[in-house]
């Protein structure tokens, strides 16, 4: 057998064996990987809209996905918004929930961030940051309180900044405010419609 034909045969054989093996592995793991991804979103939605039973994706673009959620009676509770913005180091990916009128933020959760450990990374910490976002009035743009004050002293649409991590705090705030504005304009333009079928 000539050398070149042996080369071709060997490379083809290696390619076919590895391709076959990998497609088996790929098919075996695909469902599970997909399920992991969906579960992460599902869990985040339940975190940001307490009592959400089911959810429907109603709008999607890059770094901005809107879900409507319903409670166990099938009534619409509001929106869960998945979005991302530029933080101190890299993207901050987060999700927050609002009521159907977009007047109130239920909760906020951070899904992915690469902020400075010990400083900016505190945006994932409930005590240091996330608790200030619970049940905030968002009929006006939210504002950052700096330096932070006691929770009782915060205004209805004010949240505390993290000491030493103003940029990360501001990044989250700006991302949320921008998403709220975008959601409102999408509803106004009729791109997003909520069909009310509760009470049937």
């Amino acid at each position: 057998m000539s050398l070149s034909s042996r080369m071709v045969i060997v490379l083809t054989a290696v390619g076919i064996i590895s391709g076959g093996l990998l497609s088996t592995v790929g098919i075996l793991t695909r469902a599970r990987i997909e399920a992991n991804r969906l579960r992460e979103i599902e869990e985040a939605i339940i975190t940001v809209v307490p009592g959400a039973k089911t959810n429907t994706k109603i709008y999607e673009e890059k770094d901005f996905t809107v879900y409507t959620t319903r409670n166990d009676q099938g009534q619409i509770q509001g929106f869960a918004i998945y979005t991302a913005g530029t933080g101190f180091q890299d993207k901050i990916v987060l999700m927050f929930g609002t009521d159907a009128e977009i007047n109130k933020i239920f909760r906020l959760t951070i899904l992915d961030q690469k902020e400075t450990p010990g400083l900016g990374a505190k945006i994932t910490d409930k005590e240091a940051f996330l608790k200030y976002w619970e049940n905030k009035d968002c009929s006006h743009p939210l504002m950052l309180k700096k330096p932070p004050v006691a929770q009782e002293e915060l205004g209805a649409s004010e949240v505390n900044a993290i000491t030493g991590a103003t940029i990360s705090s501001e990044a989250v705030l700006a991302t949320v405010n921008a998403s709220l504005a975008k959601l409102r304009s999408l509803i106004q333009a009729g791109t997003i419609q909520i069909e009310e079928n509760n009470g049937q």
Binding site: S18, L22, S23, V25, G26, T29, R30
Partner: peptide, 9 residues
């Protein structure tokens, strides 16, 4: 073609 698992290769 849903071949993401061939990305590395």
């Amino acid at each position: 073609f849903n071949l993401e698992y061939l990305q590395i290769v």
